[in-house]
């Protein structure tokens, strides 16, 4: 197990091993998403209060969960890169940020679309909505900081500190609906007594959550592989893989000094 993980930490082996995983990860994503969408949009009964409008939950809730999960993932991998100087951890953290920002944006937009017919407003400045918006700004700040610093190690260190500091927002988002009076309702699935949702409506939600999770790792690995190639573009293994030593990948964009 450790030997395998150790192998994954080496750029060359990471590139080779994960390349074989990606088609399978796409298959698994679809295996969760197709039944999840079918059960959620066709089979699940309409809600007693919200009718069919509640079905937007099957995108909104998993997207919001992912926005929190990816931020924690980013802070943890960033911290690992910071403490152990691990190149792969840096790449993982940097590659996950745009995916997390997309999920946050999706959660905010679907939330607004849901809020208009049900609450009567697109947006309110309550604690849940505001803290989720701050999460989007944290992601964007992280991406901007990465892009502003040329040297990859310095960029990774600065961004990791931002990610770690920003992670205090995560429990605030999660508990905002319990600590303060908010327009957003309280948690449904993680309630202690019993989930406040009928099983026929819960199953599609869990399937969609699994689909989004696998989708994240699929896209993450694809992004990480590209990022890896770019950072290692001068390394021997990259040049050997792309045929000969004179023609390198990215030779159109940058002159390689040999």
């Amino acid at each position: 197990m450790w030997a395998f993980l150790h192998k994954l930490a080496s750029p060359k082996h990471f590139y080779r091993i994960t390349g074989r995983w990606i088609p399978w990860l796409w298959v698994i994503t679809l295996l969760f998403m197709v039944p999840g969408l079918y059960l959620g949009l066709w089979v699940a009964p309409p809600d007693y209060q919200q009718g069919d409008s509640f079905r937007i939950m099957y995108v909104h809730v998993p997207a919001a969960w992912m926005s929190l999960f990816i931020y924690v993932f980013m802070a943890v991998t960033g911290g690992i890169g910071l403490i152990w100087n691990m190149k792969m951890a840096d790449i993982m953290a940097a590659s996950s940020a745009p995916i997390g920002a997309s999920f946050t944006f999706l959660a905010l937009v679907t939330g607004a679309i849901w809020g208009k017919p049900m609450w009567g407003t697109w947006w309110v400045w309550d604690a849940r909505l505001t803290s989720e918006l701050i999460l989007l700004f944290l992601y964007l700040g992280y991406i901007a900081l990465q892009a502003a610093i040329e040297e990859p190690r310095t960029a990774a260190r600065a961004a990791a500190i931002l990610a770690i500091v920003g992670s205090v927002n995560i429990p605030i988002i999660h508990y905002s609906v319990e600590w303060w009076n908010t327009l957003h309702q309280g948690p449904t699935v993680t309630r202690m007594d019993k989930p406040a949702i009928h099983p026929s409506m819960l199953w599609p939600l869990l399937l969609m959550a699994a689909a989004f999770q696998v989708y994240f790792f699929t896209v993450l690995l694809m992004r990480a592989r590209t990022e890896l190639l770019w950072r290692e573009r001068r390394a021997r293994w990259v040049r050997e893989m792309f045929g000969n030593s004179t023609r390198t990948p990215f030779s159109n964009t940058e002159k390689v000094v040999t």
Binding site: D47, Y48, M57, G120, L183, I197, M201
Partner: peptide, 18 residues
Amino acid sequence: NQVLAKHDENYMPPEVAD
């Protein structure tokens, strides 16, 4: 000057609610 509806965290089919 504005009224917003707050729904709760319970989701169930109409028959179950009845």
